[in-house]
């Protein structure tokens, strides 16, 4: 049981924090960091978008999905096919990817009306295993095993940016916009409805929360996020192939969501950095170390900090604000059981 306190920082500190974040994201990463790392940070942002989607559906919707790479694949292939086969402008494909993934999410989320808990995890896992063979089978359209060469979008000539810096900024703008949208979705009555439906369906239903529709809508929304992430991924890498979007990608996104904090939108960026950089570092030491670290990190996070790194950070921040008196609103209000960690009494 946590207290609902809204941090209210003094203006000076708020400005300072914003400035530091702005310097990091607008200057340090694109201009100071070596250029081969810049496109990796762009990938981090794309993964972060997909992870925010998982936060929505798994963290707040309570529906465990292990198959988000399927929607990332849908987005990536939508962009690739429209660009390669129909000569579209790559940026124009992003809304198409978003719409298609949203529709696919509704269609596949419909079984979520019936699939509860484990079965949804199982179904999405199987979906994710099925995606690469399907992509390979329709090779006339998808390019099969060879994949499709999308090419990296070039930076406009009037800007003093190289291609990887340009795509980084494109990802940054889209990620920021989607982050704000998720924040808006998760503020106010919808957040409470989601949490009620997640933690106690019966009570939620009595309060007039239609869990089925809500879950499907959340699932569709989170698929949209994954689809946009896929579009961006196709542009960053400049190439799509079926085996990229295998079950391992689904599971890494899940790992990222849990490690970053399943109910922490801010944690998504940490989770995304984890799944982008840890395998690269680990594979320098041993090929198999990456999976071992992922598996270990998943288990250790849940045992030691169930709220994830981001969730832990948010709590420490709140605690600090409370201690320093930087809060608004009077007195403690008992409310939402925020993290999954405190939702442990739900019937199995």
């Amino acid at each position: 049981m946590s207290l609902v306190v809204k941090p209210k920082l003094p203006v000076a500190i708020r400005v300072a924090v914003t400035a530091v974040l702005a310097v990091i994201f607008l200057y340090v990463i694109p201009f100071v960091v070596p250029s081969y790392l810049v496109s990796q940070f762009a990938t981090v942002l794309a993964f972060a978008i997909a992870i925010v989607g998982i936060n929505l559906v798994t963290g707040f919707g309570g529906a465990i999905t292990l198959g988000h790479a399927a929607f990332v694949a849908l987005g990536a292939y939508t962009t690739a096919i429209l660009v390669v086969r129909y000569g579209w402008n790559p940026y124009a494909t992003i809304p198409v990817s978003a719409a298609l993934s949203w529709i696919a999410g509704w269609c596949l989320g419909f079984p979520a009306l019936r699939l509860q808990g484990l079965y949804l995890a199982l179904g999405t896992l199987v979906l994710s295993i099925t995606v690469p063979p399907i992509l390979k089978r329709f090779d006339g359209f998808t390019g099969g095993v060879q994949g499709l060469n999308v090419g990296n979008p070039e930076a406009p000539a009037f800007l003093p940016l190289d291609d990887s810096q340009w795509i980084y900024f494109v990802c940054l703008v889209i990620a920021a916009a989607l982050y704000v949208v998720a924040r808006r979705i998760l503020s106010g009555p919808l957040r409470r409805a989601l949490i009620a439906a997640r933690d106690n369906q019966l009570v939620g239903a009595v309060m007039g929360v239609d869990r089925a529709t809500l879950t499907t809508a959340t699932f569709a929304m989170s698929s949209l996020y994954a689809g946009v992430a896929g579009s961006l991924y196709a542009m960053i890498v400049g190439f799509v192939s079926p085996d990229t979007f295998n079950v391992m990608m689904s599971l890494s996104l899940f790992v990222g969501a849990v490690v970053g904090g399943i109910t922490s939108l801010n944690g998504a960026i940490i989770g995304a950095m984890f799944i982008q950089f840890v395998p690269i570092w680990a594979s320098d030491i041993d090929v198999s170390l990456g999976g071992l670290v992922f598996g270990g990190a998943l288990i250790i996070t849940l045992v030691v900090i169930p709220a994830g790194i981001g969730g832990l950070g948010e709590r420490v921040f709140l605690w600090l604000c409370t201690r320093l008196g930087w809060v608004e609103g009077a007195g403690p209000v008992r409310a939402e059981a925020e993290a999954m960690g405190s939702a442990q009494n739900e019937p199995a």
Binding site: I64, L251, S288, L292, F294, G295, L298, I299, Q344, E346
Partner: peptide, 24 residues
């Protein structure tokens, strides 16, 4: 007595770890 998310995550963690262990 853990939540479903914890159970699923631990088993997925085990899956990833065992897979890599065999590779190692």
């Amino acid at each position: 007595h853990a939540s479903l998310l914890t159970v699923v995550s631990v088993l997925i963690g085990l899956y990833l770890a065992l897979n890599s262990l065999a590779g190692f």
